[in-house]
């Protein structure tokens, strides 16, 4: 299977602080990759570098055979192929639920409004939010907002979905509804890269788990390998910390 996105020797510095040190990673079509690791290990930065919300200091990101970091590559054109779900939802506050899912389709993909609304409604149905089309973001609970955010990203028919700690800002009792939605998506064969602290979820849905530590990929493998037979000492130490 060919790689949808291939990252080679990616580095990112914030001033003198080296946050990502020589990361290489490729994501295959249909694959679900979860990235775990302690706070400050660079996993969110890696995800944000993938859709260039952070500009990498060096390295390359290959998408459809082209390095998206080379000069003159159109950022918006690249980004529309990647769906992003943020920790803090970031629904457009000035739009209702339906409009949140429609606006990108109309302005970026140039779909006509009727078609866009139909697609938006389908995706809202998928996340079980179709009854709330008229609600404004500030009228929804966190879990509801995050499900709308997922529908918004899906409505763009992305090649890859990126999830940046999608449940970290949610009350524990609501986390389940979002994870359920994501699990459902994973089963449809969508390519997903997920940064998460939910180990049980990572174990269950991932094709591959990546453990990051201090800006590098410390260990990578199947859930079975990482969770049950970790090779690296730091992986073991991390897992024993979070699982107990």
């Amino acid at each position: 299977m060919s790689a949808t996105i291939e990252i080679n020797h990616l580095k990112k510095n914030f001033g003198k602080n080296e946050v990502l040190k020589d990361i290489s990673l490729s994501v295959t079509k249909g694959e679900v990759v979860t990235i775990i690791g302690s706070s400050g290990s660079g996993k969110s930065t890696l995800l944000r570098c993938i859709n260039l919300l952070e500009k990498p200091t060096s390295g390359e990101i290959i998408y459809k055979g082209e390095n998206v970091l080379k000069k003159g590559y159109s950022l918006p054109k690249y980004r529309k192929n990647l769906g992003m779900v943020f920790q803090s939802f970031n629904l457009f506050n000035n739009m209702n639920v339906l409009e949140n899912c429609v606006t990108g389709q109309v302005t970026v993909l140039k779909r006509d409004r009727e078609e866009a609304e139909k697609i938006a409604q389908e995706n809202l149905q998928l996340v079980d939010m179709e009854r709330y089309v008229n609600a404004k973001p500030n009228q929804l609970s966190g879990g509801q907002k995050q499900r709308v955010a997922i529908a918004r990203a899906l409505s763009m028919n992305p090649d890859v979905m990126l999830f940046d700690e999608p449940t970290s800002a949610l009350d524990p009792e609501i986390v389940g509804e979002v994870l359920k939605t994501m699990k459902h998506l994973a089963e449809t064969g969508l390519t997903m890269v997920i940064v998460t602290h939910e180990m049980g979820f990572a174990k269950e849905v991932s094709d591959r788990v990546i453990f990051m530590d201090k800006g590098v990929i410390a260990e990578s493998g199947t859930p079975e390998e990482i969770f049950n037979h970790p090779k690296e000492e730091r992986t073991k130490a991390f897992l024993s910390r979070v699982l107990n």
């Binding site: 918006p76 980004r79 970031n90 990108g104 763009m156």
Partner: peptide, 10 residues
């Protein structure tokens, strides 16, 4: 986050 979300959509 509003700007980031819009840019992430393309």
């Amino acid at each position: 986050g509003q700007t980031e979300a819009a840019q992430a959509i393309g």
